[in-house]
Lab assay of single mutants.
Amino acid sequence: HSLRVHINGKDFEVHNADEHVIRALEELIRRGADADELKEFLERWKG
Rank of each mutant, 00 (worst) to 15 (best):
H1T: 15
H1L: 03
H1W: 00
H1G: 15
H1P: 15
H1M: 03
H1E: 15
H1C: 15
S2I: 15
S2V: 15
S2C: 12
S2D: 15
S2A: 12
S2G: 15
L3C: 15
L3A: 13
L3E: 15
L3F: 12
L3V: 15
L3I: 15
L3G: 13
L3H: 14
L3R: 05
R4G: 15
R4E: 15
R4P: 14
R4D: 14
R4I: 15
V5Y: 02
V5F: 05
V5W: 02
V5L: 07
V5M: 04
V5S: 01
V5Q: 01
H6F: 02
H6Q: 11
H6V: 13
H6E: 06
H6P: 01
H6K: 14
H6C: 05
H6N: 13
I7F: 03
I7Q: 01
I7H: 02
I7W: 02
I7N: 00
I7K: 00
I7P: 00
I7L: 07
I7M: 03
I7A: 02
N8S: 03
N8F: 04
N8P: 00
N8V: 01
N8C: 04
G9Q: 01
G9M: 01
G9V: 01
G9L: 00
G9I: 00
G9C: 01
G9Y: 00
G9S: 01
K10H: 07
K10A: 06
K10C: 03
K10E: 12
K10Q: 13
K10S: 05
D11I: 15
D11H: 14
D11P: 05
D11S: 11
D11Q: 08
D11W: 15
F12C: 02
E13M: 05
E13L: 06
E13S: 04
E13K: 02
E13N: 02
E13W: 14
V14E: 01
V14S: 01
V14T: 02
V14F: 11
V14G: 00
V14K: 00
H15W: 05
H15V: 11
H15G: 03
H15Q: 08
H15N: 10
H15M: 07
H15F: 06
H15L: 08
H15P: 05
H15D: 06
H15C: 04
N16P: 03
N16S: 09
N16W: 05
N16Y: 09
N16Q: 06
N16R: 04
N16V: 06
N16D: 10
N16T: 08
N16E: 05
A17G: 04
A17R: 03
A17N: 02
A17E: 07
A17W: 03
A17L: 08
D18T: 12
D18I: 03
D18K: 05
D18M: 05
D18C: 05
D18V: 04
D18F: 04
D18G: 08
D18W: 02
E19L: 12
E19T: 07
E19V: 12
E19N: 07
E19D: 09
E19Q: 11
E19S: 11
E19P: 08
E19I: 14
E19W: 06
H20N: 13
H20Y: 10
H20V: 12
V21Q: 06
V21L: 15
V21Y: 02
V21G: 02
V21H: 03
I22S: 02
I22L: 06
I22W: 03
I22H: 02
I22R: 04
I22D: 01
R23P: 02
R23F: 06
R23D: 05
R23G: 07
R23I: 09
R23S: 07
R23C: 07
R23Q: 09
A24V: 08
A24W: 08
A24G: 08
A24M: 12
A24K: 10
A24C: 06
A24R: 09
L25H: 01
L25C: 03
L25W: 04
L25K: 00
L25Y: 03
L25M: 05
E26T: 11
E26L: 13
E26G: 07
E26W: 10
E26V: 13
E27Q: 10
E27R: 06
E27H: 10
E27W: 04
E27Y: 04
E27V: 07
L28G: 01
L28T: 02
L28R: 05
L28Q: 06
L28S: 02
I29S: 03
I29G: 03
I29E: 02
I29V: 08
R30E: 07
R30I: 11
R30C: 11
R30K: 12
R30Q: 12
R31H: 11
R31D: 12
R31Y: 08
R31S: 11
R31I: 11
R31N: 13
G32P: 02
G32C: 04
G32E: 05
G32H: 07
G32S: 05
A33Y: 11
A33Q: 03
A33G: 06
A33N: 04
A33D: 02
A33E: 03
A33V: 08
D34S: 11
D34F: 05
D34K: 07
D34Y: 05
D34Q: 11
D34A: 08
A35P: 09
A35D: 08
A35I: 15
D36P: 06
D36M: 06
D36N: 09
D36E: 11
D36Q: 09
D36F: 06
D36Y: 08
D36R: 08
E37D: 13
E37Q: 11
E37N: 06
E37V: 10
E37P: 01
E37A: 12
E37K: 10
E37F: 09
L38D: 00
L38F: 11
L38H: 01
K39A: 14
K39H: 14
K39W: 15
K39R: 12
K39S: 13
K39L: 14
K39F: 15
E40F: 07
E40W: 06
E40C: 07
E40V: 10
F41V: 08
F41A: 10
F41K: 02
F41S: 04
F41Q: 04
L42P: 00
L42N: 02
L42V: 12
L42K: 01
L42F: 07
L42R: 01
E43I: 07
E43G: 08
E43C: 05
E43N: 09
E43Y: 05
E43P: 03
E43F: 03
E43D: 12
R44M: 12
R44P: 04
R44F: 10
R44C: 09
R44E: 10
W45Q: 12
W45S: 10
W45F: 13
W45V: 12
W45T: 13
K46S: 14
K46A: 14
K46R: 12
G47K: 10
G47T: 13
G47L: 07
G47V: 12
G47H: 12
G47I: 11
G47A: 12
G47R: 09
G47C: 10
G47F: 05
